[in-house]
């Protein structure tokens, strides 16, 4: 062990789970932002509408949900104007789903880089999350715009102090998506079948969050489990802070932060431990 003193680094088969090199991650911070920049530039290169797609996606989805879930299925929207009701859920959900889909494929999509050069692999999922955070910020502006239009037309808008925790809600969603994405990325890298299962589960998972219905519809029996999903308080608080005054569900907010923290740490530890070994099975 006296050897460790004279050497700056060591490569060996075994890497303890707690050895996490934060300083190294910091060294590569420029790379994170460069990846975000690359994704932003590349995703709108040679598209006619360009960045407008960021707006169109949630708007079209809202329209479809409005027709199907409101007009046809007649699901309650908690007396909130339907378009305003769906938009927050859709924005948060697509943020979560897009982030998770990109991060879960970290290894497959970047194998060509990972096979040629070393940098902390966590850089890639972090930058994907940041890229989607950039998109979601623009979508939030869209939501504010829609609120403004409705407000001017006379629809009641109840702004409350709770909008101040909106950044926290976005942050929770990001951490939860990152945690889930990291765990799934490690699992699917080796067993591709899981990839299909995950895509499928993700689609179903949307219905476990109050995206197309209000939380008030959920029966008392399932209430705890329902609110255990971190996305539930996030979407509900987001909605109520703009549209309908509710007391802040503080207990569930704290619970959701705890759940998110556990998921995120599990993800980071698992990813950190397996990031290099996985390259042998890709």
């Amino acid at each position: 062990m006296e050897k460790n003193a004279e050497w700056q680094w060591e490569i060996s088969a075994y890497r303890p789970w707690y050895r996490f090199n934060l300083r190294e991650l910091f060294h590569y911070k420029d790379l994170i932002f460069r990846f975000v920049r690359r994704d932003i530039i590349a995703s709108y290169q040679q598209t006619i509408l360009g960045p407008i797609w960021v707006f169109l996606q949630p708007l079209f989805t809202t329209l479809v949900y409005f027709i199907i879930f409101h007009r046809v299925a007649k699901i309650s929207t908690d007396e909130i104007s339907p378009l305003l009701f769906y938009l927050p859920g859709i924005i948060i959900w697509s943020y979560y789903a897009d982030s998770i889909t990109t991060t879960m494929n970290t290894f497959q999509n970047n194998a060509y880089i990972f096979n040629k050069v070393y940098f902390p692999r966590l850089i890639v999922p972090l930058s994907s999350i940041l890229f989607h955070s950039f998109r979601v910020s623009i979508q939030l502006l869209l939501f504010l715009g829609v609120c403004l239009i409705y407000g001017l037309k006379g629809t009641p808008i109840h702004l409350s102090w709770q909008i101040l925790i909106l950044p926290l809600l976005i942050f929770i969603t990001a951490c939860f998506a990152l945690g889930c994405g990291l765990i799934i990325s490690v699992l699917t890298a080796k067993y591709r079948d899981l990839d299909n299962i995950m895509q499928f589960l993700l689609r179903l998972f949307m219905f476990a969050a109050p995206v197309v219905y209000p939380a008030s519809l959920v029966p008392q029996t399932y209430k705890f489990i329902f609110w255990l999903n971190p996305l539930t308080p996030v979407i509900e608080i987001f909605r109520s802070s703009f549209l309908k005054p509710h007391a802040l569900p503080l207990f569930y907010l704290l619970l959701c932060m705890l759940t998110t923290f556990i998921v995120l740490m599990t993800g980071i530890i698992l990813f950190n431990k397996r990031e290099i070994q996985i390259m042998d099975v890709i």
Binding site: K3, E6, W7, Q8, W9, E10, I11, S12, A13, R15, F114, N115, K116, V117, Y118, I276, Q277, M279, D280
Partner: peptide, 17 residues
């Protein structure tokens, strides 16, 4: 690849400065 930290050795160690 091992020296470049792209893949891990099964056994053995590399020390470096």
């Amino acid at each position: 690849k091992i020296i470049s930290r792209i893949t891990l050795p099964t056994a053995g160690r590399i020390f470096g400065n």
